[in-house]
């Protein structure tokens, strides 16, 4: 299980990264934490002619909160964000969801942006970004653009990123929600979720639900949680629409069933 040969480049600036991306396009892969990329390279599941290592770029290793949004740079590890002092106070849902991402050891190296760019449909960070209606900031030599989460995540392992673009930051807008909840079902602790469910209740009582593991990308929906029965109806309808999918660990029917129950639980949790 050894990777195929590839060229390795460790640029000193983001400009250099963008130049390399412009030159190599989809022959190149960005190496940030490597916690998804390197297993795939070891298993020879993907091709990469060039690895561009951005893990040492200090300009990408920043967490900024300007009151409007939390901006997480592309070299920021998941554990670094978890340890950010104001996270639990200001971004309670992120604080609730991050501990479900992999393990302590992989969070030490795995990056927030990398997980979002990888776009595994059952991983937590894409779901969290969707819940915050956040955006992904992409840069290339052609310019910079911010893509809303719902447009960024297109399908399983598929995003709106162009081959010459670098995810430089992701932005989690400051939430107005009062209460949040995050739950997931996995076969083992730290595994990719079978399904992950998040809920956030705003001041007006409206609840936003999000789910990972039901479709090719995380899905969110506003639920009018006037009472448990109407919430259950809405969730049930949503589950049927989403269908879910079959894999080794769960059937589509089971995923729908889990969504109904887990979503009802988190709605109740945030509606208190």
């Amino acid at each position: 299980m050894k990777p195929r040969p590839f060229d390795y480049v460790r640029p000193d600036t983001v400009e250099e990264v963008l130049a390399l991306l412009a030159e190599h396009g989809d022959e190149a892969r960005i190496l940030a934490g490597g916690q998804s990329l390197i297993p795939m390279l070891n298993l020879r599941l993907i091709e990469a002619a060039v690895l561009i290592d951005i893990s040492r770029l200090a300009e990408l290793d920043t967490i900024r909160s300007d009151g409007g949004a939390l901006e997480v740079g592309a070299a920021v590890t998941q554990n670094k964000l978890m340890a950010w002092p104001d996270l639990a106070r200001d971004f309670a849902l992120l604080a609730a969801g991050l501990p479900f991402v992999g393990h302590f050891q992989t969070r030490n190296k795995g990056t927030v942006c990398g997980s979002i760019a990888h776009a595994d449909p059952s991983s937590e960070l894409p779901l969290l970004l969707a819940m915050y209606a956040g955006e992904v900031v992409l840069r290339s030599q052609r310019g910079t653009r911010a893509v809303p989460a719902e447009d960024f995540h297109k399908d399983m392992l598929t995003t709106a990123r162009e081959a010459d673009e670098l995810v430089v930051t992701v932005r989690f807008p400051h939430p107005s929600d009062r209460r949040v909840a995050f739950r997931e079902i996995a076969r083992r602790h730290g595994d990719f979720a079978i399904i992950a469910v998040a809920a956030a209740a705003g001041a007006n009582g409206a609840v936003t639900l999000g789910v990972g593991g039901m479709a090719g990308r995380p899905m969110t929906r506003a639920i009018a949680a006037r009472d448990a029965a109407s919430a259950a109806d809405a969730i049930g309808q949503w589950a049927e629409e989403l269908e879910g999918y079959d894999d080794l660990h769960a059937s589509a029917a089971m995923r729908r069933d889990m969504l109904r129950k887990l979503a009802a639980n988190v709605v109740a949790e945030v509606a208190q």
Binding site: R187, L248, A250, M254
Partner: peptide, 8 residues
């Protein structure tokens, strides 16, 4: 006795 089997 996996969740899939229990569910079934």
């Amino acid at each position: 006795a996996t969740p899939r089997r229990i569910h079934a």
